[in-house]
């Protein structure tokens, strides 16, 4: 089996290597990829959309259809994880035995099914796999998470002028929630951003994107041609395209953020949403 795999990989590689003899050299400014569509984008993007970052302009404006359905793919991947893994209700093989830690002394209590749950702020529920009481990690992440989220918002909003945009900012925002879930525990993270919230945000992101396109249709322009939104924003057509890119990036950021969080919740807890990583 290994020999067959090695032989087929080598054969495939050799055929491709012979093919590269016809390819343009690395960094050739006159290569076919650089001489047909892209000069039009580079020369006109700034004048037509008022977005200095050409990648953002092409991503959200010229090739908006492409990005709309990429966002839909992310949404449906999150839905697939939910439908495959999520199990509602209690685990019948391991009934709901709950572990609590008494914070002042560090003693761990085990409550059997049907037992009375201690109702006092001195008790903290912990996961079945014993985790040491870790003040430094909890406090440091608590301090750093607001700055991560602020940076994520900056990346979304400043995507016109610097590298960044909805995809990157959304992933950073999602990573901050995942960091919270890892450093505290899954139940606290679910308390901050629940499952229904992430599901609704994920769908709302795709809806904002598609809705912006449909609004353009209603205003008499083509689908996803943001210059039709100019009367709504009260600016000229070029500025309207710039603002339309921002609206779309916010939708993408929302969808990607909640998709990442949703996939993590289901994967880390095997769909039970009780004990995480």
């Amino acid at each position: 089996m290994k020999l067959v795999a090695l032989a087929s990989a080598l054969l495939c590689g050799t055929i491709l290597l012979f093919g590269t003899a016809e390819f343009p050299d690395f960094g050739d400014p006159d290569s076919p990829a650089a001489s047909h569509v892209s000069p039009r984008y580079i020369e006109e993007a700034m004048a037509e959309t008022s977005a200095p970052n050409i990648v953002t302009a092409v991503l959200a404006d010229y090739r908006g259809f492409d990005t709309l359905f990429e966002t839909a793919v992310v949404f449906s991947a999150a839905m697939a994880c939910f439908f495959l893994l999520r199990i509602f209700g209690e685990d019948e093989r391991r009934p709901s035995e709950k572990l609590y830690r008494h914070l002042p002394t560090g003693i761990t209590l085990r409550i059997d099914p049907g037992g009375k749950v201690p109702d006092s702020p001195e008790f903290e529920r912990i996961d079945g796999i014993w985790i040491p009481h870790d003040v430094i990690v909890k406090t440091t992440t608590r301090l750093i998470i607001p700055f991560i989220q602020l940076f994520g918002l900056y990346v979304i909003a400043h995507g016109h002028h610097s590298p960044g945009g909805g995809f990157q900012g959304g992933v950073i925002l999602g990573a901050s929630v995942i960091l919270y879930a890892i450093s505290q525990n899954l139940r606290q993270a679910l308390g901050r951003m629940g499952e229904a919230v992430s599901a609704v945000f994920c769908a709302a992101g795709v809806f904002i994107y598609a809705g912006a396109g449909a609004l353009c249709l209603l205003m008499g322009a083509n689908f996803l041609d943001y210059s039709g939104l100019a009367p709504l924003f009260g600016v000229d057509a070029i500025q309207a395209r710039s603002l339309g890119i921002l609206v779309v990036e916010i939708g993408v950021g929302l969808a990607v953020m909640s998709a990442m969080v949703w996939i993590y919740y289901n994967l880390a807890s095997m769909g039970r949403h009780q004990e995480g990583l």
């Binding site: 970052n53 960044g164 990157q168 992933v171 990573a175 993590y264 994967l267």
Partner: peptide, 23 residues
Amino acid sequence: DVAFTEASVGAGVSTVLFVAAVF
């Protein structure tokens, strides 16, 4: 832009997802 995306997605979230699956 691609490097930024890969730094946040590839090195960040997908490693976390992988560790969660291994866990």
